[in-house]
Amino acid sequence: MNDVIITAIQQTLIEGNVETAETAARAALEAGVDAQTILNEGLMRGADIVGQQFEAGEVFLPQLMFTARALKAAMAIITPELKRLSAESGISSSKGRVVLATIQSDIHDIGKNIVSTMLTTGGFEVIDLGVDVPIKRIISTALDEGADIIGCSAMLTTSMPFMSDLIKTLEAMGQRERFKVMIGGASVTPAYAERIGADGTAANAVQALQLARQFMQNALA
């Protein structure tokens, strides 16, 4: 019975349908399926399938975004139960919290949006601040929200220095060790990331998700 319910949840994610995702999540809870199982085997698995299809070029950006939207809607249904379980066990269901932004002076956001969607479908809580975000706001949000990771993107070469400024500011504030900093963008290379003291970079959204997971695993180790 649970298998049928879980498969149905996966399917709603693959279809990216908000209403059916909410209905399926609600029905699963009512049927007594564990919220953690709904999350890991239903929602995350469904989102993962779409993420793989996107990476293979079998589906396109809208499908990925619709899946992320359905995931958020279904998460809202099961979150109270997840919180209750989390309080009981002391284990969080979140994979980690990421503050994401296109850095100050740059307004290009497609790449950042894809990363945001992939991280969301990968189970991360993403606080997406949008484009042209001043570094002070990125840092204050990360501190206020208790973020694990700060992610910044820049497509323009002349915006990249602001990513270096962000890291220097964290250092000056004595807050550098609180966050992992990942950077990305068309002109960002691993050598550049290393030079400015970032913790890593990714060439695409799939790699960004892998990098974020790696950060969190290392933090737990």
């Binding site: 002076s105 002349t158 915006s159």
Partner: peptide
């Protein structure tokens, strides 16, 4: 293309060296 630096200094969008560049 664009000048990413002038006189050895990085050019930053929206700052003084954007004018120079």
């Amino acid at each position: 293309g664009t000048l990413a630096e002038v006189d050895g200094r990085e050019v930053r969008t929206g700052e003084a060296l954007e004018i120079t560049a």
